[in-house]
Design a protein around this nucleic acid. Structure first.
Length: 465
RNA sequence: GUGAUUGUAGCUCAGUUGGUUAGAGCGCCUGAUUGUGGUUCAGGAGGUCGCGGGUUCGAGCCCCGUCUUUCACCCCA
């Protein structure tokens, strides 16, 4: 049979793994620095844990796992006879692959609440699965790197997460734009125009602001049967936000006369943004005391995010780098006030962000931002050693003891040319040709320059280092 | 989920309006040559043309189905 792997999944070669690990290590280091602690959860969860948390679209993208044994006997025979796939699923599948790391985390918090010290800061780097159709930057199995703080209402957590995002992308060398919004503003607008029941239609309409501007939003709202007064009111909001001037944004709050939700959303947004040097809405803090970010931080009122559980802050990060054409978001997150409530632990607000490692990989690859030394693993190869294997092994031991990665060519019977090809293919920078060496001096070749020289064994370690 | 797109040797690709034993470059293997792998020369292995069905005297080229690739929409990391 011809070997293959499922659609949307990938194998990773050693070269790719070294680069992937570079991303994971960078993100993990920043997570640790900010005080987050690691956990892991299983690949699969009970379907009931996952279903209903991601909205209608999200639920459809959850991979279900078939029950074991004679599952058709256990199934609802009537639904089975009617070939009602959608409804019969729940009777033949009780488990599912996890769709993100946030919901399993909420489940974890509830199950381990007695052992956790709150506020709890955890990070988690694991694969998740989505039954999406693959395309650019979209895979069916991909890694998320999450950091969440749960059990704290403080908006300083939002501030810290923005600092964390800025630091990660600064370390990776990618220029990005951090978009920030608050879901309360969105529901505030819905309330203000008297259409809280059309929240989703409003969000979808606002979404086109990004591409088509205020006029596009009006058009979209017309399509979705909003009244002229409603459209005009929203248009007012949009224009105030699209105009990036602080005084324009300040006047924004005056628009929420009838919505406490909207007013609060504005205050939350304001109090977070005010910590950063790029914004100065009310001029309270002097510029010197504000945090300077390497990347851009912007308010984007159209930012809604599909995940249903967000209730406050919403983050999204997009690449803004000439060297990359990547347009989809590479990091996102937000605040969820009651994710644990459904599992029986109310009043536990959390906020977190999720880095899309695979998309970040694509960006770094496209923009050529991987450090070059990320490719070399072994520093030294010993070749042509068949005549004196004990000497070869003793040199190997000495180099290893100096904490340098080195190896023997794995087959002493192969031709010299083969052994040199191996060094080149593996990008090993140095080769010791043992047939021309003795217990005092070794013949060392630098593969990149092609130069050979004889140096003493004691110098070897320092030379390679 | 909707609409396109791709699939020929290990890799990158040719293959004309359907017509005899399906090609190239690189790579790989063998031998020779070369004062020290990387040069040059000679030879060689390797493909049921994604899979299944159909049309035809005859299909890599046409039709249907299916899987896969890539992309847009939707949604999202």
């Amino acid at each position: 049979m011809k070997p293959s792997i499922p659609k949307g999944t990938r194998d990773f070669s050693p070269i790719e793994m070294v680069k992937r690990n570079y991303i994971f290590d960078t993100i993990r280091d920043v997570f640790k620095k900010f005080g987050f602690l690691p956990i892991e959860t299983p690949s699969m969860e009970n379907s009931a844990t996952l279903m209903g948390k991601y909205g209608e679209e999200g639920d459809k993208l959850i991979f279900k796992i078939l029950n074991s044994g004679d599952f058709l006997k256990e199934a609802d025979q009537e639904l089975l006879a009617n070939k009602d796939s959608k409804r019969v699923t729940s009777s033949i599948s009780e488990k599912a692959l996890k769709y993100d790391l946030t919901v399993p985390f909420a489940r974890y918090v509830v199950m381990h609440q007695n052992e956790i010290t709150f506020p709890f800061k955890r990070y988690q780097i694991q694969p998740v699965w989505r039954a999406d159709r693959p395309q650019k930057g979209r895979y069916r199995e991909f890694y998320q790197c999450d950091a969440d703080v749960i059990g704290s209402n403080s908006l300083l957590n939002e501030v810290e997460l923005i600092m964390l995002i800025d630091e990660v992308f600064t370390k990776l060398g990618v220029k990005v734009k951090i978009l920030f919004n608050n879901r309360k503003i969105l529901s505030g607008i819905a309330e203000e125009i008297g259409a809280p029941d059309k929240f989703h239609d409003l969000v979808y309409s606002l979404d086109v602001n990004d591409k088509l501007g205020a006029f596009g939003v009006s058009q979209e709202m017309t399509k979705r049967d909003f009244s002229i007064e409603q459209i005009e009111k929203v248009d007012d909001y949009i224009r105030k936000v699209n105009n990036k001037a602080p005084e324009s944004f300040r006047s924004f709050s005056e628009l929420f006369k009838n919505s406490a939700n909207g007013q609060r959303g504005f205050e939350e947004l304001n109090s977070v943004m005010n910590n950063f040097g790029q914004y100065d809405f009310n001029g309270v803090l002097s510029q010197e005391n504000k945090i300077k970010l390497f990347n851009k931080l912007e308010i984007d009122i159209s930012l809604a995010r599909g995940l249903e559980y967000y209730t406050g802050a919403i983050f999204e990060v997009k690449v803004e780098d000439d060297r990359s054409s990547f347009t989809s978001s590479i990091c996102g997150g937000g605040r969820y006030d009651d994710l644990t409530g459904i599992f029986g632990l109310p009043n536990m607000s959390g906020v977190g962000i999720s880095f899309g490692a695979d998309r970040i990989y694509d960006v770094l690859e496209e923009a050529n931002l991987f450090p070059k030394d990320a490719e070399a693993t072994t520093k030294l190869l010993i070749v042509d050693y068949a005549n004196d294997i004990p000497l070869a092994l003793s040199i190997l031991k000495q180099v290893h003891d100096a904490n340098i990665s080195a190896e023997l060519y794995p087959d002493e019977t192969k031709k010299f040319a083969k052994q040199m090809d191996y060094a080149e293919a593996r990008r090993i920078p140095f080769v010791v040709i043992l047939s021309k060496s003795n217990s005092n001096e070794v013949e060392l070749k630098d593969i990149r320059s092609g130069k050979r020289e004889t140096i003493s064994l004691s110098e070897l370690v320092d030379f390679i280092k």
